[in-house]
Design a binder for these strands. Structure first.
Lengths: 117, 117
DNA sequence: TCCTTAGTTCAAAAATTATTGAACAATTGA
DNA sequence: TCAATTGTTCAATAATTTTTGAACTAAGGA
């Protein structure tokens, strides 16, 4: 069961910007970038502090559809990773500046977590 | 008659991102950045190809309120400039990467124009 | 003064996005 | 097998954003 992701070339700048413009989604991206040097996989449930299960599912789908995150299904869980390399290739410097700015944006903060699996 | 602009510190990242996420507004910003090394002043009417007078007024107000552009009134005209220094200070690298990405985003293109006044 | 130009404001309508809860599916563990 | 966990989908609602046209303001020029 593979979820649909855009290819690197399909990633659209206006879409990326508007998807990142939502505080909940920006907090998710900032958290992914902060944890394990931005290479971490993280299950959706990590983000439950940011909203209901349903609403989170909606926001995470937006991130995936915009090409910002990759979602892999493992069992009943979904693991999220930042598509850092794809984004850096397509829009050099964008993710870094957004993540840096997000640290001071007063977004909902999530605890640092360590992903074992 | 001075229009309200946020101070540099008031510029909010999520707001900047969502305002730039609209293709019309992104085209305006890309055009401002392209002309005269991004230092150009440009009257609103330069952008009429992108929409009606009323609609443009709406989008330009969004850009101003987000702190992306500065609008000065001169007679009946409004001149727009990019707030490049403020944005660079607040979110280093963001504007450059957005403008670079916008060149390949298939946005509505405006003619290069030369502002005399 | 009267007209034109440049742009805003307002209210309504249209369109899009976000949020919710109920129902569902798939996996995992007891 | 049964129950719990993880998350999705659907339909409805709420909220926000975008677009439009009519009316308006404020200069500037004839």
């Amino acid at each position: 069961m593979t979820l649909p992701h855009p290819t690197t070339e399909q990633i659209s700048l206006p879409l990326v910007l508007s998807v990142l413009g939502d505080p909940t989604r920006l907090a998710i991206v900032a958290h992914l970038a902060r944890c394990e040097g931005g290479k971490g996989r993280m299950s959706c449930s990590r983000f439950l502090a940011l909203g209901s299960k349903t609403n989170l599912s909606y926001h995470l789908a937006k991130l995936r559809e915009a090409g910002i995150t990759r979602t892999e299904a493992v069992g009943t869980q979904r693991f999220l990773t930042l598509r850092r390399e794809d984004l850096d290739q397509r829009f050099p410097g964008l993710l870094d500046s957004v993540v840096a700015g997000a640290e001071f944006a007063g977004l909902p903060k999530l605890e640092e977590t360590f992903e074992v699996a």
